[in-house]
């Protein structure tokens, strides 16, 4: 007689797997940390996604001499200021997009906020063969303390594949 494991692992038995959704939509925030990444994020945002928002840090970083605040670090792609903590509070995942060699000063504030709110973070650095290793290292070093998963990709098409894989 066939064992339970042998029967259960057969292709015939696969037909009886329950065909019902097994997850709810996730809330994912994709944040561009620098100007080239903002362009990438804008291109990504033109596709149809589920509960995923695309944001940027560029336009809204407070002046250096302003008192510290977690407000005003983010903007949506139309340029409207967003409140960082409010944006990430209910997120399942924050994906920070950086381009190797670019300045990504706001990483720590976003990372700190995610850490405070116990939100999972992924850092994704897009690089090219022409980028010097030292510049890539600098980007990685800035992201490493704040990213629970860090990915170095040679092309931006990986980001779309990753978001799709994560059911964004």
């Amino acid at each position: 007689m066939q064992s339970e494991s042998a029967r259960a692992a057969s292709a015939a038995e696969a037909r009886f797997r329950i065909d019902a959704p097994n997850s709810q939509p996730r809330s994912i925030k994709v944040i561009a940390l620098d100007r080239p990444s903002e362009a990438i994020v804008k291109r990504l945002a033109t596709s149809v996604w589920g509960n995923t928002s695309f944001l940027t840090t560029l336009a809204s970083a407070p002046p250096r001499d302003a008192p510290f605040s977690m407000r005003g670090w983010l903007a949506d792609l139309a340029g409207h200021t967003k409140i960082l903590v409010d944006e990430i509070e209910h997120a399942d995942l924050v994906v920070m997009i950086a381009t190797a060699g670019e300045s990504i000063e706001s990483t720590s504030i976003i990372g700190e906020a995610c850490s405070l709110k116990r939100v999972m973070t992924t850092g994704l650095v897009v690089t090219a063969p022409s980028v010097p290793a030292a510049e890539l290292s600098r980007s990685l070093a800035q992201l490493r303390p704040w990213a629970l998963m860090l990915v170095v990709a040679s092309a931006e098409d990986y980001i779309a594949d990753m978001l799709m894989a994560l059911r964004a």
Partner: peptide, 18 residues
């Protein structure tokens, strides 16, 4: 146990699966 070819349309990968 996943079956001969797992149905990847049903999986729920997470960030650590990068």
């Amino acid at each position: 146990s996943m079956g001969p070819i797992v149905d990847r349309t049903k999986e729920n990968l997470v960030s650590t699966d990068n």
